[in-house]
Amino acid sequence: MYEVLKSGQFMKKITKDWRHDIYDVFKELNITLISHIPDAGHTPLIDLCEQDNEIDVITLTTEEEGVGLSSGAWAGGKKSALLMQSSGVGNCINALALPNICRIPFLAIVSMRGEWGEFIPWQVPMGQGTPKVLEAMDVKVFRVDYEEEVGSTVYAAAKFAFNTRRSSTVLLSQKLIGAKQFKNG
């Protein structure tokens, strides 16, 4: 028996915010533990998860905790995802050795900064480095630029992680999220 990848079902539903599409994937795949360092791009998704009694939401002090936390949860039979901003990816690099060497499924959803229309120069180095360091640590990188593709891409990335016991990330591009604008004063 085999299952046909049905990520097409998670194509954008017109009436919803695209964060709902990610939440729907969590529900479909029984991902019941979400850890995060909050980012504005993730806030609606974090809110959705917090309102769900079946999902445990943990605020971390640094993103790398989420790598060990996810790995330990999986060792106990629980599926999870880490939500973070691209700057947080830099904090995770050595920690990613754990899911890599043990072939533990690891899924992260990353909101990008430092690219499309960025205002703050300090965001650029890690934003530009994010896909490179992930690939250097053998993490499969999926990227989304258009809201129609959010659900199907997160679904595909999660399947990749949990079916093949590997690490995968979805980079939610700044073009998708919208570049944050700042006003002085």
């Binding site: 533990l33 445990d56 790398e64 905790e65 989420g66 790598v67 060990g68 936390l69 996810s70 790995s71 330990g72 949860a73 999986w74 060792a75 106990g76 039979g77 629980k78 999870s80 050595n94 920690a95 050795a97 754990l98 060497i101």
Partner: peptide, 25 residues
């Protein structure tokens, strides 16, 4: 038993994740 041989700093987060997943242990 599960013993870390690397990934310094990750054993305690791992134990927290395990404790959440296995509340009866």
């Amino acid at each position: 038993n599960f013993g870390f041989i690397g990934a310094m700093g990750q054993a305690v987060p791992f134990a927290l994740g395990l404790s959440i997943a296995k509340p009866d242990l």
